[in-house]
Design a protein around this nucleic acid. Sequence first.
DNA 1: CGTGGCCAAAAAGTCAGACTTTTACATCAC
DNA 2: GTGATGTAAAAGTCTGACTTTTTGGCCACG
Lengths: 235, 235
Amino acid sequence: MTAQARGLHAHVLDSLGPAITAGEYPPGSVLRTDELAQRFEVSRSVMREVVRVLESMHLVASRRRVGVTVLPTAEWNVYDPQVIRWRLAGADRPRQLRSLTVLRSAVEPVAAGLAARHASAEQCAALTESALGMVATSRGRRLEAYLVHDIAFHRVVLDASGNEMFARLGDVVAEILAGRTHHDVMFEDPDPAAVTLHVRVAEAVREGDAPRAEALTREIAEGALRELDILAPPR
Amino acid sequence: MTAQARGLHAHVLDSLGPAITAGEYPPGSVLRTDELAQRFEVSRSVMREVVRVLESMHLVASRRRVGVTVLPTAEWNVYDPQVIRWRLAGADRPRQLRSLTVLRSAVEPVAAGLAARHASAEQCAALTESALGMVATSRGRRLEAYLVHDIAFHRVVLDASGNEMFARLGDVVAEILAGRTHHDVMFEDPDPAAVTLHVRVAEAVREGDAPRAEALTREIAEGALRELDILAPPR
DNA sequence: CGTGGCCAAAAAGTCAGACTTTTACATCAC
DNA sequence: GTGATGTAAAAGTCTGACTTTTTGGCCACG
């Protein structure tokens, strides 16, 4: 079973949440707690807890006498990791991936610049190690091993920035990178130029060269955007 | 009354949430649902809903036989608008404000660049109007009126970027700007240079000059960071 | 024909109590 | 000391009754 023991409410949430983010209940739709409770075969108390959580994510609004209304997309807490996961698993995955990659392209260069100033010796070591790992697995269809190092690299950069908001984007970046490898077909070995850029970012951070770290990371990000334009053209 | 009619659970949440984010219950603290229900004089069902919401924000984790554990800060959903508000209202407001301003400095320039490409005629008009409003209220201690235009300006830029993730940061930026005006003492009129920069950003966006819009916005952001360094030095 | 107030029903909100399930911890045998 | 076992504590679940708010219709009155 897929995490059944995590509680009844979590199970219902994992079913209803994706349904809403996928647009199965278009904005404006009205649901009733009692009806939902019956549909999912749980008690009203459990369903109420689920609705409360969805409400806290601004996916729905609950009003007396009218019911539970699905809110327009513009209201959703799109930074909630749970919501991100649900949407990445759903139909508008491509659009979502693009939004997130653009966010990445804005955040990561600045984070790298800060990392160059604040990174500890351990973080520099971890960064270099990850970069070397990427080099070592960049040829011979070792995409899975490469992915591990790639994720580790970007996580360290975000952590080393010393900014809490940046650090919390580590999971999002991991999700994006994993998605690129697993869903969006990636037959070939990773772009050698990108691998080199990662190595050079590690160097720049180690040397405390913030402008260079930022510029190099911007190149990586632009590469990712270009790649996305090719694999999944906008519009 | 301060929004008492929003439901009992919301009231309890507004009391317990800030207490947790303020560190009144340090990470690792264990609470019991029953005890909390008694303390806040609500039924267990209400308290359970509150705990569920806090759990969805990753502020706490609920485990059988042990209770409701407060999670370490690193786990919190720091992008949740509710959490942001709670933290901005609490003791570590300065640190929080810095994190968010750094995030802004990363995001807004890129958003402005995108806005220059995607902004509609209406959005360009709104932008120019806001910039003019800022000019008109930039002298004579009309800080409140200035704030309104400032918020509107940045909101339009983020919206016009066409990126959903950027657009959702409008509230955060509004919160930051409002905080700067209201809390962190701002005796003087706004920096004339900043006002001019806003006007020029509006121009660049209208002309579709993405690099210039980005560069100018980066100047605004750097100004905001410098200002923060003066008013509330780091460390 | 429109306006305003009143009533009734619908749905969420709240509560109390009984029961189940998991699990940390202590105890005991080996 | 190690491992099995039992117990109790806390969350989890369910049910049913009750309260509160709000919508929308209905009717009287201007």
